[in-house]
Nucleic acid binder design. Structure first.
Lengths: 332, 332
DNA sequence: TTGAAAGCGCTAACAC
DNA sequence: GTGTTAGCGCTTTCAA
C-alpha cells in the first residue's frame, strides 16, 4: 500500500507538498507542473490516504455514529439509508450501533465517544428524560437526536408525527367514524407523545372526544392486548388509530379472532408505512412519514455543526405525511 | 480527554509501562503495586485508550466492514444483529455499508479497504462470478462471504438453502401436491441457484418432475409477473415455492386477483421468515433460516482469520431450517 | 512556492 | 520490572 511518502519520493517533492496538492489545500499555492507531477505519481501508485493516520492527525475520524434502539424496527432502514447517502457525499462514513448489541448503553457510549471513534452522534434512541443523552451533550459531544426529542436538547430532527396523526384522524372522521380509539406507544417516548397529541387534537378539531386510549407499546403483543380492551370499551369504537405498524398488526389479529370484521365493524389505520403493509389481511391503511429525508437532514445538521457551517437546532421535516389508503379502513 | 501520558504521569511511571498494564500485556511482568497504581490513575482520570491512535500503531482498526446489497432486504437485520453481537464481544466494531449508498462498488471498496478503515470484509453481496470480490481476495484482503458463494473463493458462510428448499418441497408434497412450480431468484446469485437445486432435487426425491420454473428476481414485481405465467402453465401447478418472501407476496397478489384461491386452488410457500408474514393474506407459510447464526459465524470466522486462530473456509450452518406453517399452504 | 520539523496517542523493540 | 526510543502515516505550523 503506497504511502504519502512514496508519492512524494516518486514526484521528487516533500511529503508536505504532496499532502497539500492531494488535499487541494486552498491556503497554499503550488506550481502547476509540480502539482501535476504529484498527481501523476499518486495515480501511478494508486495512492489513497490512510484514513486512520489522517484521523489521528486531524483529530477527526470523519465518522458519524448512528445509534438505533431496536434495529429490527420497521422503517429503520429508510433512516439509515438517508443518513448513509448524505454522509457519504460529505466524506463521512457511518458507524451503525445497535444499542442492544453492546451490553449497556454506557459501554456503547464508551466505544463510540470516549475512544474517539466518531466525530458526533446521531441518536435515534432516548426517552424524553434521558440521563445518558443529557450527559453526552453536557460533555460537549456533538449530538443530533433523530426521531426523538429529549429535555434540554435542542438539536433534534423529527418528522411531523403530530400532522401524521391528524391525517390519520381526518381520514377516519371523513369516513364517518365518531368514536375512535388509539393504540398508544410508550408514554416516555417523544414520538408516542406527539402521535397521541395529534390524535386528541385531530378529534377535537372535528368537535369529537377521544375514544379509549390504550397503551400498546409499539409491539405486536402490546397491540393484541390493547385490542382486547378496546373491544370491551363502552361505547365500542368503530375505528382505531395505532401508533405504529406492528401494534396495528397485533390488534388486527386480536380483533379478527374476536369475530369483529375489519373494516366492516372496525377500521384500523397505522402509523408507519412498509411495502409489506399492502399484503396484510386486510391490506393496511397507513401513514407514511418522510423517514429517509429525516435521516438525510439529521446527517446534514450534524455535519454542518461539526464543520461549523451551521449550528444544530430543532428541525421538523415539513414534507407532509402521506396517507396510503388501503382496505383496513372503511365507512363508519 | 485523558491520554496515556496523563495516566503514566499521575502514576509516576513511563507510558510504556502504563500501556502494558492497561492492555494486560501477557508478555511482560509488572509488579503488583505499580500495576495497581497505574490502574488507579486510569480510573481516576476516566482514561480510555484512543482507538484511532491504537489503530494507527497496530495497523489494525479493529473494524469489520459489513457490505450489504440492498439494505432493505427483509431478514437483513437479523444478519447484522448476529454480526454485531459477536464482533462486539471480540472487541470489533462493524462498519455497515450499503453497496448502493456509495456511487459504485469501487468507491466503496476504496473507502473501506484502500483507506485502511477495516481489517476485513464481510460481503453479503456478490454474484457467482464477481470480478470485484475476486480482485479483493487476490489483493489479500481478508474477506468472508455471507450468504453468498463466488467462484474461486473458499471463505463463505452460508445457510443450507438447499435443505430449506427441500423442506418446503417436502411440505408441499406431503400435502398431496404433484405439480409444483418455482419462483426463482436471480440466476447469477448463488442462494437462488441453491434454492432452485433444492427444489428440483426435492421433487425428484419423491419421483416428481419439477413444474414451471419462472424467474421472479427476488422482487415483488417479479413475483407478480411470474405468477401470471405460472397460472397459464399446462398443467397448471397446484403449488408454488417462492425463493423469497417479497416475490411470494407479489405472486399471491397476482394469483388472488386472477380469482384463484390460496390455498384452495394454489398453495404458496416462501423462503425467508419475518414476523409480519403471520399477518399477510393468507398468513404465509415460510421457511425460516438461521440468519442470525450465519452472521455470528461469519464474524467469528473473519476475526479468527484476522487473528490467525483459524483459517477461513467454507461453512454451511447446520442448524436446520424451520418450517413455519401458516395458511397459504393446504391439501393439493 | 516548497521544505523541514514536529507531533496526533499509542505500541513494541530493545535496553537497562 | 521498568524506561528509552522509535515510529505508524498523515497534517500543519514555521522557515526558507
Amino acid at each position: 500500500m503506497a504511502t504519502l511518502r512514496d508519492v512524494a519520493d516518486l514526484a521528487g517533492v516533500d511529503q508536505s507538498t504532496a499532502s497539500r496538492v492531494l488535499r487541494d489545500d486552498p491556503g497554499q499555492a503550488v506550481r502547476p507542473d509540480t502539482r501535476e507531477r504529484i498527481q501523476a505519481a499518486a495515480r501511478k501508485l494508486g495512492y489513497r490516504p490512510n484514513a486512520v493516520a489522517r484521523s489521528l492527525r486531524t483529530r477527526r475520524p470523519n465518522m458519524l455514529g448512528l445509534v438505533m434502539p431496536d434495529i429490527d424496527n420497521i422503517g429503520f432502514m429508510e433512516v439509515v439509508h438517508g443518513v448513509e447517502m448524505y454522509a457519504a457525499g460529505r466524506g463521512y462514513m457511518v458507524l451503525l450501533a445497535d444499542a442492544k448489541a453492546l451490553d449497556r448503553s454506557e459501554e456503547l457510549y464508551g466505544r463510540l465517544v470516549l475512544e474517539g471513534r466518531v466525530d458526533g452522534l446521531l441518536a435515534a434512541f432516548g426517552k424524553v428524560e434521558d440521563p445518558l443523552i443529557a450527559h453526552l451533550v453536557a460533555q460537549g459531544m456533538p449530538l443530533v437526536l433523530v426521531n426523538r426529542q429529549s429535555q434540554g436538547i435542542d438539536a433534534a430532527v423529527i418528522v411531523d408525527d403530530y400532522a401524521g396523526s391528524r391525517l390519520a384522524v381526518d381520514h377516519l372522521v371523513s369516513l364517518g367514524h365518531r368514536v375512535v380509539g388509539h393504540l398508544a406507544g410508550p408514554d416516555d417516548v417523544d414520538t408516542a407523545q406527539r402521535r397521541l397529541e395529534g390524535f386528541v387534537d385531530g378529534l377535537a378539531a372535528h368537535g369529537l372526544e377521544p375514544g379509549p386510549i390504550i397503551a400498546a407499546g409499539y409491539s405486536e403483543a402490546g397491540g393484541r392486548h390493547a385490542a382486547l380492551q378496546l373491544l370491551e370499551a363502552q361505547p365500542r369504537p368503530t375505528a382505531v388509530f395505532a401508533a405504529n405498524l406492528m401494534s396495528a398488526l397485533g390488534a388486527v389479529a386480536a380483533i379478527k379472532s374476536a369475530g369483529v370484521r375489519i373494516p366492516g365493524d372496525m377500521s384500523v389505520i397505522a402509523m408507519d408505512e412498509h411495502p409489506i403493509a399492502a399484503h396484510t389481511d386486510p391490506p393496511m391503511t397507513t401513514v407514511a412519514m418522510p423517514l429517509a429525508e429525516m435521516g438525510t437532514e439529521a446527517a446534514r445538521m450534524l455535519i454542518d455543526a461539526l464543520e461549523g457551517t451551521a449550528p444544530a437546532r430543532r428541525l421538523v421535516i415539513e414534507t407532509p405525511p402521506r396517507l396510503i389508503r388501503r382496505e383496513s379502513t372503511g365507512p363508519g
